[in-house]
Structures are given as structure tokens and as C-alpha cells.
Design a protein around this nucleic acid. Structure first.
Lengths: 128, 128, 128, 128
DNA sequence: GTGGTCTAGACCACA
DNA sequence: GTGGTCTAGACCACG
């Protein structure tokens, strides 16, 4: 679980993705409590408000639920929601890539090639 | 050649991409003059300064060159630069998608499936 | 740190030079935050957007890096970049002068004289 | 006698400098007629209006004088004017370089070094 | 008419 | 509060 401050992707969005991925990967089980915003903030070395914003979005997305004074917990169906949204995010990025390729008149074959290259070039990394 | 004002991608960045794609697709040949910022602005229905920012970036990227009082022209090697940068942009988006998938423990097989679905679902569109 | 609105050199370019000089001179250390565009703008009595354009160029040149919502910082190697670019700018101006002299058939001796005169005639000035 | 369309220096200004240099170098003697704007334009491969503007400036500077219907001629004291102005231009560029160096806290010794390097690195070129 | 610069002011995402 | 983007409109240098 980490964050790249230099990325063009907003930090809060990176956190949203990371949490969802962690849930999908089984790091946080349904009904389980996730670390407080402050804990997460010092873990990731980011501003607590940024984590707060990410958590709020996850509540909004139906992945987390808030129990006041206690903490935030993965929803009953949180794992499913996270899975669906992860797939959506992935599909959305790929869609952008494909559209870019289409307007430059790249063939589907060429796009498949690029995809395969990137797939084998991108290393697998741990969740922690 | 059009622009989506609602996109998260800044308009000027969309224009940069569109122009590069058009050059790669052969709409604008090397050495050829591209429409003035003002013409392009009214074509895309955006502010001329927004177009100018995009053009300035393209000059910076070595795709266009500026001749004062005459117009902007596709560089000698502009087509190559544009091609390389288009591929980079595409690969970059796919890389983001793959990284997202990796941290959610998606298998490569699943990622390939998503890619194929998106590829067949994304319509081809004209340049004009 | 000041700017001459009457100069033929664009204001934003003057700011780029001034910041680079300040970094080379050690006014802003590597990793340090520089004043916000708004602060700098009211300091120099210019429009904030003009400063922002200068800052954007410095980011582009690899001298500054931007952290959204926090500020702009001198890059790790920013001091080196600034030094190199300052020397390049100086050498470029001198090269223009020498070429002018060459085509008017000035001797190197005469060019050295002019240089020495200007060097002793140009006052040293503070950074602030 | 040539012009660099890619330079940051305006073309008309380059022409002004070139003509002055040519006069200083003795290519055009006092009282002699210089090529018409059209001739010069096709020689330099630039827009005739651009040459026209350069000539007008040279008249304004007291280097050339116009005889209607006949052409433009180097003034009586044109050679002196051109010499003085060439020196001024050269001194001005050097002054800009020195100011840049001063604000970056370059020592005079370092500036002299840069000057010497550029002087020996810049090739002598013919007038034609 | 064309590009380049500058100003003024607004809005938004981010921290 | 900070950077980033966008709009609107002005002015200038250039061809």
C-alpha cells in the first residue's frame, strides 16, 4: 500500500484505488474495520485530509460504511462493489487508450501488441 | 476532430492528442501548415488561448514549428515524434490499467479478457 | 528580484531567468519551496498568470517540481539544471554578440575590449 | 548575407544587422546604392515587406537615405553610424549576458572564461 | 491575418 | 491557500 506523489493521478484517487484493490485482494474482509484516517495518513505519509477525502468517496461508492466514533468498515457487499469498480476503472483506462489509438488509425493488431508488451513489462508487486 | 469539455482530461491536452493523432493518421503531412489557432478555436468551439496552449506544447514536443506571422507547420520529423508520443501515451494508459489490475490480484488472463471486450466495444470514429 | 516591464525580453522570460539565477546564487536551496505564484506576483507587481507561465516553464526545464495544493519546490538536481541553463543563456547572448562582430569584421581584440568595457561598466546588484 | 528564420531575433532585425555589418565591413561603400528590397528579398528568401521594414529602419537610423524612384543609398556618414550602432548592439547583448551572470553570482573571472570560450568557438564567416 | 504576450478574473481539484 | 485550467479581451511584432 503506497502512493506516488509525482503521479498525475490525484493522491486521494490513488488511495481510493489502493483500498479497493486491497479489498478485492482479500487484505480487508467484509465487515472488517480498516485503519483510521490518521493511521493510514502516517503510513502513506500524506495529509490526513487527503485520506479523509478518499474514505468519504469509498463510503459514497458503497464500499465502506461509517460507524460514528468507532471507525470505517468494509460493507457487506463491499467486496463485490470494489471488484466491479476496479474492473470499471481498468476498462475505463483501456478505453481511453483504445480511443487514442483509434484516432491515430492504429490497427487493432498494433493495439494488441502494445497491450501485450506492457502486460509482460509491468512487474507484479505485493500489496503491503 | 473534436473535444469533450466534460472530460477529466484538460481540453488543451485533448487538443494535443487530437493533433498528434491527425498527424500520425496523415491528415497533416510533414512540412504542411496546420489551421491557425483562431480557426481551430472556432472549429472546436473553444477559446483561442486554449488552442494556443496546445500548439505551444506541440512546438515544445518537437512536433510543430512556428513561423512568426505565417503559421505553424508540422516539423520535418514531426510525424515520427507524434507517432512515438502517441504510442507512449497509449502504453502509459495501459500500464496504469495493468498496475491497477495487478494490485487487485487480477490474473493476466482476466486482464486480457477486459482488454478484448473494450477493444471490440469501442467504436471506430472518423478524424474529421 | 525584479522585473523590467519595458524590456524587449518578455516578462515571463525575465522571471524564469531571475528564479534560475536565485537558485544558482543559493537563494533557494534544492528541495526548498519557492513563493507561491500569487505571492511572487504581488512582489513583482505583475499578473499571477504571468508568474505561473514562468513557473510552468521552470517545471518543464526540470528546475522546479510541482506538488498540487502544496506549492512548487526546487528539484533535487534543480541547482545543476539552473546552473547549466544560466551558463547556456549567457553563452548564447555572447555568441550572438560575437557573430554580430564577426560579420562586421571586428577583430577579436576589439571584441575583447568591448567586453571588458561592458563588464566594468555593468553594476553589481543585489538579489533581493 | 543570410538570415535564420528559426532564430528568436526577428528577421527584419537580422537584416538590419546584416546590412550594417556589410557597410562596416566595406561591402557597401558610402554613397553606393544597395540592392532593391525585392532583390534583397529573393536573395534572402524572405517576404519583401520584411526587407522593406528593415530598410525603413536603416533610413530612420541615418544609415541609408532614400532617393525616390531610384533606390536607397548608403549615407555620407552612413559608415560611421553603422559602426557606432553595431558596437552598440554588440555591447547591448554583452550587457544582457553580464547582467544575467551578475544576478546568478558568477564571478567576473568566470564570465571572462565563458566569453573567451565562445570567442574561440564561434567560427569566422564570410559576408556573402 | 498570425503568433506571442499580458492582464483580469473565474472556477475547480487538491491538500 | 495552492496550483491548474479556462475564458475574454487587449496589445504588439511580424509578414
Amino acid at each position: 500500500m503506497r502512493v506516488d506523489p509525482g503521479s498525475t493521478v490525484p493522491i486521494f484517487a490513488q488511495i481510493v484505488n489502493e483500498i479497493q484493490s486491497a479489498i478485492v485482494a482479500g487484505v480487508y474482509a467484509e465487515g472488517e474495520r480498516i485503519p483510521s484516517a490518521r493511521e493510514m495518513a502516517q503510513l502513506l505519509k500524506v495529509n490526513p485530509n487527503t485520506v479523509q477525502k478518499a474514505y468519504a468517496e469509498l463510503v459514497d461508492l458503497g464500499v465502506l460504511e461509517s460507524k460514528r466514533g468507532i471507525g470505517k468498515f468494509v460493507c457487506k457487499r463491499g467486496s463485490r462493489s470494489a471488484l466491479r469498480q476496479s474492473e470499471d476503472s481498468i476498462a475505463d483506462l483501456i478505453r481511453q487508450a483504445v480511443e487514442l489509438g483509434r484516432s491515430a488509425k492504429f490497427t487493432d493488431k498494433r493495439l494488441r501488441e502494445i497491450f501485450s508488451e506492457v502486460l509482460s513489462a509491468t512487474p507484479k508487486r505485493g500489496i503491503a
